[in-house]
């Protein structure tokens, strides 16, 4: 490990701690509480007091926070108020589903964005370029719930190719899992492709203006090799940075997408937990999302540094 990476991880931990405080304060200061959601009109002062004592909600906020944080550090995420299941178990079950969904969506998006962006950049100003950039702008402007609903209507209802909602576990029935996951993945892909394509195009344009592209051309390197390899290799790093930042957008996208498709991943879990003011689930869920975001971006930064030989030395320097 190098000092550069360690420093980044240190900043990441600090960020996580700030997130934990913010999440805790916000959720506890929202109007409403888990007990009124749970008991509704049957809440009496006695049962309320009993439940508050049970879940420790009667203690001062700082004490509650410290208790939660202390348990977190020992790996104990607490127990869900609404389902009475350990939060760790919920995360272990739901989070992988969302991650698969996000990864699938991202891969689909990259599959279109990378060649599309390269094509647009290499034919700058042509009809192809205009078509691709305008198309990405249009896609970028579509909200997930709208794309999701359109897909449900077309492929779920009219054509009846895919189930409109629900879930089968990957381990039980891989084909069924894929049938249930295709449309949510497509939804995520559609809304992320636009930005990625434009990013790839922009980084490629910068690279193609460089003198070393002229040198490659003057040495007779074939045009597609110049674009795909000489320029493409150097355009990876800036694109990667945007992909890292996109992870955040992907997460919020997953929340909405899972709701549209009734897909029981982390996003749907978080929405339901928020509605029922299930404090332990919301706090831990958001913290895990934040941690994922920070880790992804640290990895992206390190990989970008490694990709550039000029910064690679700083990574290797203090090994």
């Amino acid at each position: 490990m190098t000092t550069a990476v360690i420093r980044r991880l240190g900043v990441g931990l600090l960020t996580l701690w700030v997130v934990s405080v913010l999440v805790f304060l916000i959720i506890h200061n929202l109007p409403g509480d888990p007990i009124s959601v749970l008991l509704r009109q049957y809440a009496t002062p006695e049962t309320r007091a009993a439940l508050e004592a049970l879940w420790g909600l009667d203690k001062p906020l700082t004490e509650q926070y410290l208790a939660w944080l202390g348990n977190l550090l020992t790996g104990d995420f607490g127990v869900s108020i609404s389902s009475n299941l350990p939060v760790g178990q919920i995360l272990a079950e739901r989070l992988p589903r969302t991650l698969l969904l996000m990864t699938g969506g991202l891969l689909l998006a990259l599959l279109v964005a990378i060649p599309g962006g390269m094509l647009a950049a290499s034919r700058r100003g042509s009809a192809v370029d205009h078509g691709l950039t305008t198309g990405s702008l249009v896609l970028q402007a579509q909200p997930e719930f709208w794309i999701g609903s359109l897909l449900v209507l077309t492929f779920g209802v009219t054509l009846a190719w895919f189930p409109t909602s629900g879930y089968v576990d990957l381990a039980d029935d891989p084909v069924g899992w894929l049938r249930h996951s295709v449309m949510p993945m497509l939804t995520i892909a559609v809304v992320t492709t636009g930005l990625l394509l434009r990013t790839v195009r922009a980084s490629m344009l910068t690279e193609l203006q460089q003198d070393h592209i002229l040198l490659a051309r003057s040495n007779g390197v074939r045009p597609w090799r110049v674009i795909g390899w000489h320029a493409g290799r150097n355009a990876v790093a800036p694109t990667l940075t945007v992909v890292g930042l996109q992870v955040g957008i992907l997460m919020s996208g997953a929340v909405i997408t899972e709701r549209v498709f009734g897909y029981p991943g982390m996003g749907l879990t978080l929405v339901n937990a928020l509605i029922s003011r299930d404090y332990p689930v919301v706090q831990s869920g958001i913290l895990v999302f934040a941690a994922l975001f920070i880790v992804t971006n640290t990895v992206v930064d390190v990989v970008s540094m490694w990709l550039d030989p000029r910064t690679r030395a700083t990574l290797q320097g203090a090994r």
């Binding site: 460089q210 003198d211 070393h212 002229l214 040198l215 490659a216 003057s218 040495n219 007779g220 390197v221 074939r222 090799r225 000489h230 290799r233 150097n234 990709l307 550039d308 030989p309 000029r310």
Partner: peptide
């Protein structure tokens, strides 16, 4: 062709070996 600014004319991500190989291949 010999260019004005050799630092810009060489691909920062390629070693000199790769530059030469690319030219040979071309």
């Amino acid at each position: 062709y010999v260019f004005q600014e050799p630092l810009a004319a060489l691909n920062p991500g390629f070693t000199i070996r790769r530059h030469l190989l690319e030219a040979l291949r071309a």
